[in-house]
């Protein structure tokens, strides 16, 4: 059996809202007891619509947010950021790429500085080596060394997402959490970024947690799929099992709602319209 990079048992996250002068606050159950397990080099895709708690789960896995209840293991080691601060070694193991490449890069920071910042904070690599590593990473994600001194506004959406991926990889993480990394991108650019992610996974034996609402992307990239609905994992299994035989009614709704771009379904639609 291969090693398990990420394991979560019974993750719960509640948010308390309101509770002002008039009336008591209420509790929102964002994540209601989710279990998951990802092996090294595999991709787990988490699917669901906005508000289903998938990004909250991503924040918990990335150790940005503490779960209300439940246990999180990274590389077999128990993590509890509510109890004690995270060591730099743990912080290095998990990195995240956010959805909006326009919002997640500081407009006043040059690309080189964007890439070197994680090293300054989490490691004691000397300046010359930081620079060298940033240059290497730039070429790895398909950019040029001359991009080092440019600002984020000089790049297109796809290039910015490459920069965000490069930044996440600077610390050689074991686990990369991708929160809707391609939903803001055009189709052909989306294909380039997905190819890049596949190449990087092979090269660094990375483990991915891939959050998306686009089922066609999930089908392409995932090994395992989890479908979330109102904070619960309503379906969890291997990609083939989930796609060929969805059990939960919500999963079926989701599949039915996804537009189909094959010739057969266009024919059917046109026939329906003509009738």
């Amino acid at each position: 059996m291969s090693e398990v990079v990420l394991e979560a048992r019974g993750i719960v996250r509640d948010y308390h809202v309101g509770g002002g002068l008039f009336g008591a606050g209420r509790t929102v159950h964002a994540v209601k007891g989710v279990d998951l397990k990802v092996e090294k080099g595999k991709t787990l895709a988490i699917v669901g619509e906005s508000g289903c708690g998938k990004s909250t789960l991503a924040r918990i896995i990335t150790m940005i947010d503490a779960p209300t209840a439940g246990e999180l293991f990274i590389d077999g080691e128990k993590v509890d950021i509510a109890a004690r601060a995270l060591s730099p070694e743990m912080r290095r193991k998990v990195q995240i790429v956010f959805q909006n490449p326009y919002g997640s890069l500081n407009p006043r920071q040059k690309i080189g500085d964007v890439l070197m910042e994680p090293l300054i904070i989490n490691s004691d690599v000397p300046a010359a080596e930081r620079r060298e590593r940033a240059m290497t990473m730039l070429t790895k994600v398909g950019l040029q060394p001359e991009h080092f001194n440019r600002y984020p506004h000089m790049f297109s959406g796809g290039q910015r997402q490459r920069i965000a991926i490069a930044r996440a990889l600077m610390l050689n993480p074991r686990l990369l959490v991708l929160d809707e990394p391609v939903s803001a991108l055009d189709l052909s650019v989306q294909a380039q970024v997905l190819n890049l992610l596949a190449d990087l996974q092979d090269e660094f034996a990375l483990t991915y947690v891939f959050i998306s609402h686009d089922l066609s992307v999930v089908r392409y990239i995932a090994d395992d799929v989890m479908v979330m609905y109102y904070g619960e994992a309503v379906e969890y299994g291997s990609r083939d099992a989930v796609f060929s035989d969805p059990q939960h009614s919500y999963t079926k709704t989701l599949f039915a709602a996804t537009p189909r771009a094959d010739v057969e379904s266009i024919r059917k639609r046109l026939a329906r319209k003509a009738a």
Partner: peptide
């Protein structure tokens, strides 16, 4: 969708993840 004439249309259609045949997605 059946017989795209132009190279760009063909590129767009083959970049759809559901049309992926091999390990890699073709890009434009």
């Amino acid at each position: 969708f059946e017989t795209p004439q132009h190279a760009y249309t063909r590129a767009l259609l083959s970049a759809l993840p559901e049309n992926a045949t091999g390990d890699r997605l073709p890009t434009v």
